[in-house]
Design a protein around this nucleic acid. Structure first.
Lengths: 127, 127
DNA sequence: TTGCTCCTCACGTCACGTGAGGTGGC
DNA sequence: TTGCTCCTCACGTCACGTGAGGTGGC
């Protein structure tokens, strides 16, 4: 992951360096880098574009907020709303991931039959 | 998959329409469309770029050729070479797919703990 | 103080998307 | 014969890659 990518994520508003030096240099914390890793994971594993990733990250940030402010019991209605929203989003993502995994399994099975076929051709040649 | 994509694949030499009308219109056979499906599968599931896909397709085309010309026993040495090459390529692909599947499994497990956590928060709220 | 790193434009790339305008076959 | 489909440029887009040239902090 290059400098350019980090700047591009910042430009899109999905990654803000947690600190700047007085000279204007961007400082990335460990949490920032984990966020970068999350972005790349969502890109490569699920094939999401940066708009979709922005939506996922927004939701994850909000649920993290709820968890952090769990003491204040006053707004339990709003909290319930956010829990419902999170559950819907995560469940939806789970389904797409599950579908992708099944497709990958089918792909693997196909590769295995190819390998078996090639080995059979070898045997036929030797025998 | 749009017209533009088909033309682009043709431009790169990875998909040639199997026939043309006298007027110059491209005719895609069922085998052509299967090739397109293969291209998309390699793109979306494995994240290969069109250069890498070209290499995979070249190999698959050659192994298909070998299988088709299996009668002529004369060039058994060359055939063995191609079998070895194919086995290496398919085995390598199998490993990357396996790695991807394991990553997806880990991703699924993470989603499941998130779902469980949200449900626990619901229970805590109701109880 | 001197490199060196980081900075901001800005153009290039890959895999197409999307009209713009024109010819030719059911 | 008349639309309509397919054709070829050609510019736009997304997610960066890659220098070009300049300032500022160990």
């Amino acid at each position: 992951v290059t400098e350019r990518a980090l700047r591009y994520y910042q430009e899109l508003g999905i990654l803000e360096p947690s600190a700047h030096t007085k000279g204007g240099m961007r400082r990335y914390s460990r949490a920032d880098l984990e966020r970068v890793a999350r972005i790349r994971e969502l890109q490569t594993l699920l094939g999401l574009n940066l708009d979709e990733i922005a939506a996922v990250l927004r939701n994850e940030d909000r649920t993290a907020e709820i968890r952090a402010a769990y003491q204040d019991t006053t707004q339990s209605d709003q909290r319930r709303e956010l829990l419902i929203e999170s559950l819907a989003l995560v469940t939806e993502m789970r389904q797409t991931v599950e579908a992708k995994r099944e497709a990958l399994d089918a792909f693997l099975a196909d590769l295995d039959t190819r390998i078996a076929r090639i080995n059979a051709a070898f045997d036929e040649q030797s025998g």
